[in-house]
Amino acid sequence: MKKKIIIVSVSIICLAIGSFIYLQMDDSKQVSETYLQTLIYQDANHDLVPVSLNVHNQMELETDIRNKIDLMQSSQLQAYGLYPVIDSQLEVQSVELQDHMLTVSFNDCLYSNQDALNIIEALTYVLTDYDDVNQLKIQIDGKDVTYLPNSTVPLNHLTHDLGLNNFEEASTFLHQSVPVMVYQEKTIADYLYYVPTTLRISESDSLEEQVQTILSHINSKIHLLNASLDNQVLTLELDSNLLLDNERIDKTLEELIILSLTSLDNVKDVDILINGESVRNQETSQIHYNYIKI
């Protein structure tokens, strides 16, 4: 049976031995009482999986970054289908934040990794997930590096918009399109995760065309009747074929829709209407996924 809750006793790098870790899709009360940080692992197919890890203390920036890198080098979650993206020999040499540009220097182990795009995406997603960081520049041995082998993504101007699990790597295309992370449910080692894929949508497409493209990737049965954006709230009118017996839509489908559409520019929340009535099951702030509690 597929499970959405995991309980396991592990010791991860600097975390206390014997900590109890479990992955759960939603527990808003407990999540709100802790500091969440996002880490990236990969499955056996090299798909990147964002995991929300809760800690009880916020740390100084450089210490926090070093701890995150240490955690993403850990192999302790292999039993749950999660593997480290980052080589255990990779070391953080220095961290500097100036004018919202975060510069992190690594040792030359960064050159030896074969899956360069996965590493760049994982590092960028995690290291730009700070309020004060708008851009990331990666250095090796304190020197600027334009590209890694097997990658065309420039390392001197990385932003959160790069996303995860990109279909398209060519840097010219990145600047001609709107990046969106579209989430789907995936079974990994008998556990269910929400896994994003970053799509590039033409900037010339209308809002309705962009929304329909995203919804089609989530579930081909979703039929969009109308889409409008007002005060950063995207309102969808969907066909009634999605309704369940309780006149609501499936909770997992709702979460995938919300997570995906809020990655669009200027969209902070989403309302879903069917037959003129809202069919949302929960507030957007209550959606928590791939959550690990220590």
Rank of each mutant, 00 (worst) to 15 (best):
I258V: 15
N275T: 00
L229N: 03
D271R: 15
L273D: 07
V178N: 14
T213M: 12
L234P: 03
L225V: 00
T187M: 10
Y194H: 11
L242S: 05
H223K: 13
L259Y: 02
E254N: 12
V270S: 09
S278N: 14
L273T: 09
L259S: 07
Q184K: 13
Q212R: 11
P179D: 06
L253Q: 12
E208A: 10
M181L: 07
V279F: 04
E254S: 09
L243T: 07
H175N: 12
L192A: 13
E185A: 15
N241L: 03
D245A: 14
Q210E: 07
Q282V: 07
D271A: 15
L273M: 12
G276Q: 05
E169H: 09
L253K: 12
M181K: 11
L192F: 06
Y191N: 13
S220G: 05
N226Q: 14
L234T: 05
V270Q: 10
Y194D: 14
L242Y: 02
S240K: 10
N281Q: 12
I214D: 04
R280S: 10
V211A: 03
L273Q: 10
D265C: 07
D250E: 15
V233Q: 14
V180L: 03
N226E: 13
V233M: 09
P179G: 05
I201Y: 02
S278R: 10
V178E: 15
E203Q: 13
N246W: 08
S202M: 07
E203A: 12
E247A: 07
L244M: 10
A227H: 06
A189D: 10
I257F: 06
S216G: 08
L224F: 02
N241R: 02
I258P: 14
L264K: 04
L243N: 03
T252L: 00
V233W: 03
L238K: 03
L207R: 02
L192Q: 14
T172N: 10
S220H: 08
N246A: 10
L174K: 10
A189T: 08
T197R: 15
R248T: 07
N219T: 09
V178W: 05
I188C: 01
L261Y: 09
E255G: 09
A189E: 14
S177L: 05
T172W: 06
E169Y: 11
N281D: 06
Q184E: 11
E169K: 02
Q232A: 15
Q212N: 14
S202W: 04
I249F: 07
T235R: 06
A170W: 09
S171I: 15
S220E: 13
Y191F: 13
N275V: 04
I272C: 04
V180C: 08
Q184M: 02
F173T: 14
I188G: 01
Q184Y: 03
S240N: 11
K251F: 11
L261C: 06
H217T: 01
D230P: 02
V180P: 03
N231Y: 04
L229Q: 02
I249M: 06
N241F: 04
T284L: 13
L192E: 10
V211D: 04
I249D: 05
V279M: 08
T213F: 08
V279K: 08
N281V: 08
I274R: 00
D271S: 15
N275H: 13
S285M: 06
V279D: 06
I274F: 01
P179E: 01
K221L: 12
L253I: 05
N165K: 08
N246T: 07
I201E: 01
